[in-house]
Design a protein around this nucleic acid. Structure first.
Length: 197
DNA sequence: TTCGGAAGTA
DNA sequence: TACTTCCGAA
């Protein structure tokens, strides 16, 4: 029956959300900071209520299109208490992700970016239709001639906590709600929503 | 529209 | 460190 193991190792296989390891890290580093842009993007992406402003691009795993740049910028600005935020600035921040290999631009498509889920497998994602062939697997577009210049020091047999990357409400506030209750272990059945940090 | 340097902020 | 702001160039 149940082994002593946790749900961590095994993927649900059915409808399990599986983002890369870095997507699970709320802020990374013990010295938690503010939310990061890519994380915010991921949050928006998984909420249907924002499908009209930003959404996954069908066909391409990890690719998303910003349908309403102004709105996304406004949302981001609200989250960071930067009322003067606009898409020009937000996109600059996005561009810094190119070097970090977190994102890259889908050339030719306006406002379309793609997460570098690279080697990380993202099985059955509800929003994306991945072909059984796994065409997005190796040999797709070579994003980079090289593997990873930097050492991936996270996902090598390392188990990560099954955090359901999700922020319930108020994740758009300027002021952090301080969800200390989460840590206490207040488990709400039914909805597995945990406010990120 | 997209890119990336440069300086500034927390 | 992770953007934010500004801006010239392509």
């Amino acid at each position: 029956m149940k082994a002593g193991g946790s749900v961590v190792d095994k993927a649900e296989g059915a409808a399990g959300y599986h983002f890369p390891d870095w997507a699970y890290k709320t802020e990374s580093s013990p010295g938690s900071r503010q939310i990061q842009l890519w994380h915010f993007i991921l949050e928006l992406l998984q909420k249907e209520e924002f499908r009209h402003v930003i959404a996954w691009q069908q066909g391409e795993y990890g690719e998303f299109v910003i349908k309403d740049p102004d709105e996304v910028a406004r949302l981001w600005g609200r989250r960071k208490c930067k009322p003067q935020m606009n898409y020009d600035k937000l996109s600059r921040a996005l561009r810094y992700y190119y070097n970090k290999r977190i994102l890259h631009k889908t050339k030719g498509k306006r406002f379309t970016y793609k997460f570098n889920f690279n080697k990380l497998v993202m099985p059955n994602y509800p929003f994306i239709n991945i072909r059984p062939n796994g065409e997005w697997g190796l040999g797709a577009n070579s994003l980079g001639p090289r593997e990873s210049p930097r050492r991936d020091r996270s996902f090598s047999g390392n188990s990560m906590p099954p955090i359901p990357l999700a922020a319930s409400k108020g994740f758009l506030g300027c002021f952090s709600p301080r969800p200390n209750q989460i840590r206490s272990g207040v488990a709400r059945n039914g909805e597995a929503e945990a406010v990120l940090r």
